[in-house]
Design a protein around this nucleic acid. Structure first.
Length: 253
DNA sequence: ATGGCCACTCTAAGTGGA
């Protein structure tokens, strides 16, 4: 089973890239973030023609998440249950016996800001909800744009901002790991400095000035079956790219 | 590090992203 995640930064603009990537990589599941469109504008027909069903939790202009899959999606949940939030950042579904949780985690803007407080509250609510989900789903994948670089290894040495690398954010990431999840990317030897996001400005991609903030976390039952996890930076080289690269994992189930 | 973003929106300049 191949599961992937990609923050596309506008599905309207990036649909051609998504269709090309689906054809090339043939994932069983692709989680998307930052759709920036409402469900009524979701390109279901184009994706169906490519062989993918979709469930979405869309929002105009900001946020918006979706799960594409070749097989049927069951037990769909939109938003974190019990957490009152107008921002569309979560969708979950069960596909092929695996619980998939797709998240677009808040950015946080700056440490100490109102948006940072929201990020931490959102992370706490997510953690509480997942603790429950895990009771009934031993095979669970938490994936998406976490907006957290979990260790120094995951940020370019010259990254000077506190946001994405601060202690409270990293503690929240660790709290998710402590639920019994593993960072699939770090289950394997990786070469060089690996990032999943590069700023559009300052030639950041060319200089590999990036952050690894897009993650695939898996429960122990799935970690044992993981065979490969990688970041595909090829789409970042295209014309009008997303600023994020897709991340994919192959699980032998 | 000597560069100069991108997508969105009540289509102008402001917001948000990371």
């Amino acid at each position: 089973m191949r599961i992937a995640t990609w923050n596309v930064n506008s599905l309207r603009v990036r649909l051609p890239h998504v269709l090309d990537w689906l054809a090339a990589q043939r994932p069983d599941v692709l989680c998307l973030q930052e759709l920036k469109l409402e469900d009524k504008a979701f390109p279901s027909a184009e994706l169906e023609a490519a062989g993918y069903h979709a469930v979405s939790n869309g929002q105009k202009t900001y946020n918006g998440v979706a799960i594409l899959s070749r097989g049927a999606a069951a037990d769909v949940v939109r938003d974190i249950p019990g957490f009152d939030d107008p921002q569309k950042r979560i969708i979950a579904a069960t596909i092929g016996g695996v619980r998939i949780v797709c998240g677009y985690f808040p950015n946080g803007q700056a440490v100490g800001s109102d948006k940072f407080d929201y990020k931490l509250r959102w992370l706490a609510a997510l953690t509480t909800w997942l603790r429950d989900e895990l009771k009934t789903h031993p095979r669970l994948v938490l994936t998406g744009d976490f907006n957290i670089a979990p260790t120094d290894q995951d940020a370019h040495p010259d990254w000077k901002d506190e946001i994405h690398v601060s202690a409270p954010e990293r503690d929240a990431f660790t709290a998710l790991i402590d639920l019994g999840l593993s960072d699939a990317f770090r289950l394997f030897e990786q070469t060089g400095q690996s990032y999943s996001w590069w700023d559009y400005r300052m030639g950041a991609f060319r200089r590999n000035f990036g952050l690894r903030i897009d993650h695939i976390l898996v429960t122990r039952a799935l970690a044992d079956a993981c065979r490969r996890c990688s970041i595909d930076s090829a789409p970042r080289k295209l014309e009008r790219p997303s600023d994020h690269a897709p991340v994919l994992v192959d699980i032998e189930i």
